[in-house]
Amino acid sequence: MTAPTLASDPGLAATTLLVLDFEATTPAGARPQPVEVGALAVRHVPGRGPQPTGFRFTSLIRPPAFAPVTAMMTRTTGIRPEDVAGARTVDQVLAELDAAVPDGPLLLVAQHAPVEASLLADHRDHCPRLASTALLDTLLLARALHPGLPSYGLDALITAFDLRRPADRHRALADCTVTAQLLRRLLTDAARSSSYTSLADLVAVAGRPAKGVPGDQHALF
């Protein structure tokens, strides 16, 4: 009998991995407010690893008046106040994204996923599917697979694994793209280890429960 492997796990192959990233401003005394969201979907193909499905989404978001785009955010991301002045609200944008996400088993993927989980939970009424979906945190997965690195921030991992740094790093879709590269590298590393033979094994060490619903989302896997 052939031993199970991560590369041949039917659960991994059946699940859409939706890489998600927000850029947000954090006003004093208030919760972060998104100004941009990006998402792209990948699926594991046995023998080839994670492959893009063709699903991509990105949109600027008009923040509320109490959370304007700051000069520091503009320096970091290139997003200016005038860029978002005519954009849709976060509820409108997330409702569109939620409706557009491919059907079937879904797992969100994010670098330092609690940020994305919290922002989705804040707007759960308009993105119920996303807000109730568990997340795989590439930061935690990198830490489990490569203990001892000096840092697990995205820039540090880009350098550590010699990933392609996008010219527009800190824009939402660009960060999704490089996080998908990181995911591919980490899944390749996990597949070489006998400790990880299924998607459930990955979720056990790097999963984050959704914050948009009560209960343990790890049970989904």
Rank of each mutant, 00 (worst) to 15 (best):
T5E: 15
C176G: 02
D98G: 01
A200E: 09
L18F: 11
Q217L: 15
D103V: 09
L139F: 02
C127W: 02
Q181I: 08
Y196R: 02
A190M: 14
A204Y: 08
V109D: 10
C176W: 05
Q51A: 13
I79H: 00
A200R: 12
P105H: 00
T26W: 00
H218F: 12
A172T: 04
P114C: 06
I158A: 00
H126Y: 05
T25F: 00
V90C: 10
G49Q: 12
R192N: 11
S193Q: 14
A131R: 01
L12M: 08
L6Q: 10
A144H: 09
G104T: 09
T133A: 06
S198P: 15
P147R: 03
A67C: 07
V19N: 05
T197M: 03
P64D: 15
L108H: 03
P46L: 08
P32Y: 03
S193F: 03
L130T: 09
D103T: 14
R192H: 12
L182K: 10
R143E: 12
A206V: 07
P63R: 06
D103R: 15
D83N: 11
A180T: 13
T15E: 02
A131V: 08
M1N: 10
R124P: 01
G212S: 07
I79M: 02
L12T: 14
P68T: 04
D162M: 01
S195C: 08
P32R: 01
H170K: 04
R124C: 08
S59V: 11
T76N: 03
G212L: 03
P147F: 04
V101K: 05
I79R: 00
D9M: 12
L130D: 14
A190N: 12
S59T: 07
T177I: 05
Y196L: 03
T25S: 00
A85N: 07
A142H: 05
T138C: 02
P81Q: 13
